[in-house]
Write a protein that binds this DNA or RNA. Structure first.
Length: 335
DNA sequence: TTAGTGTCGCACTGGGGAAT
DNA sequence: ATTCCCCAGTGCGACACTAA
């Protein structure tokens, strides 16, 4: 074969001569039959491989690096665009652990975007075409003027779906996910989110990229794990109680758990359980002489108030979702 | 409480079209 | 060339639930 005017007896010889990996060259060449293209492709693949070498270790892609170091891949991507070395990026990110912007720490770009009341998708988009964080977050979003993107929701006209997301403070991914996971149409998906948001008392201007499990006096709990950790109870205890007692949400479960009491025995001013008394040498008849008292099963919960300012968002969401899905089904039945 | 199980959704990723 | 828009994924860890 011939490459750049020079003749070679084999691909192998060519690969050796121009220092391009043989297997990639062969792979491409036998599919396209174009030697120029194959060389470019093979060289590029080699270069790409090299670009993901970090501390003498080869990675498939940025995602695997992010995974290996517990970092946000998006942050690495954004910095790679600034031509920083991979080493430097990871080092810096490892030190910070989270994304720092204007002196505040955020757990990922998505959290940062919503903190600035942006739909994360537009921030991802902007980063994709090279915006730096500052610009991506602060530059106003241009108005668009394309009638084909216009959409009407509850009588109001929005220039695009994205504008509707911004106005209602619901990230597009939420709507998209609802549509794919529950097979709803666009309007029903928006209805479900919007109504949940309103009923939960979350202001429209607050952008949501997820629904919190619950809100307790202004604090959003993203997961049950987060809540359980904070109040000092295991998630399994919470889940089991909920399951066994048929509770509807996390808040009513906690309320019920708070009221749960068991028999205790007062000994020298301290509360002992039946089991402890037996271990201490009491017999099945003598322990009955010890004065009894009713004590809470979950003492760690007693100091919390789960009624005032508590919103069980997941419960509201489930109710609204069921109602809307039934309504949608009813509509289809009538048609 | 731990273990098992199956599902879900977070946080992107990617790619194309068109107005600006 | 840039910057919006749209849609369509997707990996995998986190999750809820259940049982023992």
């Amino acid at each position: 074969m011939e490459y750049k005017g020079k003749k070679y007896v084999s691909l192998k010889e060519l690969s050796k001569d121009i220092q391009v990996p043989y297997s990639q060259l062969m792979h491409r060449y036998y599919r396209t039959g174009d030697i120029e293209d194959a060389v470019l492709w093979a060289a590029k693949s080699e270069e790409k491989k090299k670009s993901y070498i970090l501390w003498n270790r080869q990675y498939e892609n940025v995602n695997s690096i992010a995974l290996a170091f517990g970092l946000n891949a998006g942050s690495i991507f954004a910095r790679l665009k600034e031509n920083e070395s991979l080493e430097e990026i990871v080092k810096v990110l490892l030190q910070k652990e989270t994304i720092t912007f204007h002196g505040k720490e955020y757990n990922g770009i998505s959290a940062l975007a919503t903190a600035y009341n942006h739909d994360p998708s537009i921030i991802f988009d902007r980063l994709k075409y090279g915006f730096e964080l500052e610009r991506a977050l602060l530059q106003p979003i241009r108005k668009i003027n394309r009638p084909e993107f216009e959409i009407t929701y509850r009588g109001k006209v929005y220039a695009s779906k994205n504008e509707l997301y911004r106005e209602l403070g619901i990230a597009g991914v939420c709507i998209h996910e609802m549509m794919t996971n529950h097979g709803t149409d666009f309007e029903t998906a928006v209805d479900i989110y919007w109504e949940t948001k309103v009923k939960a008392g979350i202001p429209a201007e607050e952008m949501l990229s997820y629904l919190p499990v619950c809100i307790i006096r202004g604090r959003y709990y993203k997961t049950v794990v987060e809540l359980a950790n904070e109040i000092g109870i295991s998630t399994s205890a919470l889940a089991t109680y909920k399951y066994r007692h048929g509770c509807e949400g996390v808040i009513d479960t906690l309320q019920a758990m708070q009221l749960e009491t068991k028999e205790g025995y007062i000994l020298n001013g301290k509360v002992k359980t039946y089991k402890e008394l037996i271990q201490m040498g009491y017999t099945s008849s003598s322990y009955r002489q010890v004065p009894k008292a009713s004590i809470p099963v979950y003492p760690q919960l007693q100091k919390y108030d789960f009624t005032e300012g508590c919103v069980d968002v997941m419960k509201i969401y489930e109710e609204v979702k069921q109602e809307k899905l039934n309504m949608e089904q009813g509509m289809q039945m009538n048609m």
